[in-house]
Amino acid sequence: MELFFVNILDGLVTGLLLFMLCSGLTLIFSMMGVLNFAHASFYMLGAYFAYKISTYTGFWPGLVIAPVLVGIAGALVERYGLRRVHQYGHVPELIFTFGLALLIEEVVQFFFGKNQMAYDEPHILDFTAFTIAGNAFPAYKVFMIFMAMAVFLVLLYILTRTRVGMIIQAALSYPNTVQNLGHNVPLVFMGVFGVGTALAGLAGVIAGPVLGTFPGMAAVLGSIVFVTIVIGGLGSLWGALVASLLIGWLQTFAASYNIVIGDVLMSIGFSKPVNIDDGAFRDLWTLTVSQIGPILPFLLMVLVLAIRPQGLFGKRET
């Protein structure tokens, strides 16, 4: 039972971290209709920038400076790259971000080399916050939870309670009307892209010490961010939050319990073949849930799309 509670907390950390990435992406996606394949690369940039800054000044300045730098980089990419490609349609936009992801990974390796970076938690948070039945819960993870919560609340406030938020929401659905009302929609796009990438950068700064800062870090995260926002429903902040937490817990619990598929099959009435070593399905019988944990979100996505194409909280289909 204690372990169950620990797993809830661990899943919360994973889920909230995912949310920080997805919140920006879902805004970008619904506003511009583009799957930003380079989103995880901005997360990577955030971690590397913060690492570099931390070697000079320690962790804390990096927490502020690195996301700002990433946001500026993102805004520049939108202004001088995406905006140009936008007129050609969605597929070219997507290829652009695809190429950009490749490019960012190479540029990072060009400057930082190919080794794992020794990017560490700040010393002040390097202690055990509390222990549940022998399981230590590091203070840094508590910090991660609070950071992600803060991001969510701030975003929610801006989007629903401020004038800027209203314009963004309106521009999501009716860009032309908003433009005609005299608002600078391209500027809104640039702003949203900049803020979205800055959030990815912030996620990188915070996750870098825990999940590792290395050339493949964007690839590991890979397409899971798209899966999350598609499950949650495009353009929905609440959907992104729910889907992130769902995936965080799904992965944590899948990894925590060694349920063997063969046992499940037997419990629902299948009988185990006798000479299991020769059968084509021999691997299926010995498979455990923890082995397939990381691919469960993809299965979930295919199911969600087949049943409810607009996602859990989405209002419209794309």
Binding site: F281, P294, I295, F298, L305
Partner: peptide
């Protein structure tokens, strides 16, 4: 997008099972 994302999901599922289903 629905087609694109399903293709992504199916692609990831089969690529992952390629390592698991050794037979």
């Amino acid at each position: 997008t629905v087609f694109a994302m399903i293709s992504l999901g199916v692609g990831e599922l089969i690529a992952a099972s390629s390592i698991i289903v050794v037979a």
